[in-house]
Simulated assay, not measured.
Amino acid sequence: MPKQKAIPSAETDPRTFKQPPKKARLTRGEKSQQTYRNLMDAAAKIVGETGYAATSIAKVTEAAGVAHGTFYNYFKDRQALFDVLLPYVGEQMTDQITEDLADAGNGIEREIARFRAYCDYLKSTPGFYRVLYEAEVFAPAAHEAHIQRLSDGYHRALKRAMDAGHLRRMSDDELAATVAILLGARAYVAMQHKNTGKVPESAVQAYADLMRHGLFL
């Protein structure tokens, strides 16, 4: 009995089979940007785990998967890396918080959601606390720039709430002081729970009650 000829399937028939689309090659600029992000992400992870003092160029390049000499295509020295590290991770933090606030509503509920989003970010990125607070010593200019950017952004957010009628009217000086108080609350709550990397729900509720009802009777 003659052997039957196999019928090609859609997967094997050269007339119908389509090669998967090739991934577009990265441009030189895109490769450079990716390498920069790899170095920054590696530095953030190492500093978050061991601190600035223990972070070497060799450790960063090894974690980033690049040659040691590649580092100097992006940074003059280790200090140059430290001087941009906190602004880099700080922007990631604010971007994540902004994304979490997409459906947060307005007024006091938005403020409480902002605090909760910050606590959630600390839980998912526990190394951020060390990157932030050690920067005051190891990268003071970066620390000052980060705090200023946070303060300016918070000031604009509360000004919008004020203009929308969700926040009582106050002078610019009083608003600046309020921003400092709220940022201080976030900082010290984070400090209290830095070893666990998790801010408990009770802390969020305490913040919410303070926002809704004030402190004194």
Rank of each mutant, 00 (worst) to 15 (best):
G69L: 08
P87E: 02
P14N: 01
R37M: 11
A142E: 01
F17A: 15
A142G: 01
I97K: 09
K45L: 11
R37E: 15
A117T: 06
A24T: 12
K159C: 00
V179I: 05
R149Q: 06
A43P: 10
Y121M: 10
G153A: 05
P20T: 04
Y118E: 12
R156S: 14
R156Y: 12
D100S: 14
S151T: 06
A185C: 09
T50S: 12
Q96F: 15
Q92P: 00
F138E: 09
P87Q: 01
V131G: 02
A157E: 12
T98C: 05
T125K: 14
Y52T: 07
T98N: 14
Y74W: 02
Y129W: 15
A67I: 12
P140A: 02
L210N: 07
V66N: 02
R114Y: 09
M93C: 10
N73E: 03
G105Y: 02
L85E: 05
M162R: 13
E109T: 12
A42W: 14
V199G: 01
V131H: 02
A54C: 04
K59D: 13
A44S: 07
G197N: 00
N106V: 15
K194D: 06
E134D: 08
K45T: 13
R78A: 12
L210C: 10
R78K: 15
L183D: 09
V89R: 03
L122I: 15
L167V: 00
K3E: 09
Q19R: 14
L183Y: 06
A185R: 07
G107E: 08
K3P: 02
E49W: 03
P140L: 02
D41L: 08
N73S: 12
K5V: 08
R25K: 15
G48R: 06
A180D: 00
Y36G: 00
M162Y: 06
T94D: 06
G69S: 14
E134K: 07
A42H: 13
V89F: 01
K198H: 04
A180R: 04
P14W: 01
R25H: 14
I7A: 03
L182K: 14
A54I: 00
D173P: 08
G69N: 15
D163K: 13
K194Q: 11
E111Y: 08
V84H: 02
H155C: 00
T12R: 08
P126D: 01
A135T: 09
Y133H: 15
E11H: 11
D209R: 13
Y121P: 09
M191L: 11
Q34P: 01
A145Q: 09
M211C: 10
A6G: 04
E144N: 06
I181C: 04
A24S: 07
A139T: 11
M162T: 05
A67G: 12
G29C: 05
Y129P: 04
R114K: 11
T12C: 06
E49L: 10
E109I: 11
T50V: 14
T98R: 15
